[in-house]
């Protein structure tokens, strides 16, 4: 199981990995915590229905080395994400994001409405409800982190397992770097200010939650349901945690495909 193509695009002097697989209308996917170290069952499922295009975000595996350290503000992150999507041929395409990837996808749709045709947000971050903030995934032990992110921690751990031919230190560095990139975007509370812009999202939007999401307080769901200016639908996946794309890949992918096809 692997993507059909792996290419790189250059944005602001850094090379970003872009995976592509499948046929049909393009669907961009922005990954969640840790980025993507391997092609996943979730992407494989999506690629049976759409041309799935997966650019790596700055600092995540395949994401331009330490490109994230150039990004100080949310505006820096949004510009880089938008340019990355454009360079990946995703201007005006359907866009899905998971967790922090959803925070960026939603913000791109808010700031540049023409960039996104339909928006699918899986366990989105970026908006807090007053002092009710997301769980402290960084102030946690390794096993607690996995339990916060996933209802099936073993699946996530398996995804992050070092291949036999990899350099141990560089593998560790790449994972720590991805964690740093996420922290650079979301430290300390996961607040990106999206709440001040979310009303600008006018495209049809699907919000997917894992029923066992331990990262995002349940009260946050209404912020994404009521916030956007366009039509919003919501799906809750039983048995899934925050990284629902790992926990229930087929269910999440099916929900996305149904949303994209029904709205087409």
């Amino acid at each position: 199981m692997r993507p059909d193509h792996e290419t790189t695009v250059e944005v602001a002097g850094a090379a970003y990995r872009v995976w592509t697989a499948g046929t049909g209308a393009p669907l961009g996917v922005l990954a969640g915590f840790g980025g993507l170290l391997r092609w996943t069952p979730f992407l494989e499922h999506l690629s049976r229905h759409r041309t799935v295009v997966v650019p790596s975000l700055p600092g995540f595996p395949g994401g331009g080395g330490r490109a994230h350290v150039e990004l100080d503000t949310q505006f820096d992150w949004l510009l880089r994400t938008r340019d990355l999507l454009a360079a990946s041929g995703l201007s005006g395409a359907d866009l899905a994001g998971i967790s922090l990837g959803a925070a960026l996808a939603a913000d791109v749709a808010a700031v540049w409405p023409d960039m996104v045709r339909r928006l699918a947000l899986v366990s989105p971050l970026g908006v807090n409800d007053g002092d009710s903030v997301i769980a402290d995934h960084w102030g946690a032990t390794h096993s607690e982190q996995l339990a916060l992110l996933s209802s099936c921690p073993g699946v996530l751990e398996e995804h992050r397992r070092m291949p036999p031919d990899a350099d141990e230190i560089e593998w560790d560095v790449s994972q720590i770097r991805a964690n740093e990139a996420a922290a650079r975007l979301l430290w300390p509370n996961g607040e990106t200010g999206l709440g001040r812009r979310i009303g600008r999202i006018t495209c049809p939007t699907l919000v997917v939650w894992g029923a066992e999401d331990r990262m995002v307080p349940g009260g946050h769901r209404r912020l994404y349901l009521d916030g956007p200016g366009g039509p919003v639908s919501e799906t809750v996946i039983e048995g899934a945690g925050h990284q629902a794309d790992f926990d229930r890949p087929d269910d999440v992918a099916a929900a996305l495909i149904a949303f994209l096809e029904n709205e087409a």
Binding site: W138, G139, A140, T141, E144, I176, N179, E180, A182, A183, R184, W187
Partner: peptide, 9 residues
Amino acid sequence: DPRFVQPPG
């Protein structure tokens, strides 16, 4: 508390 000794970055 080991939770707080290695923030990423």
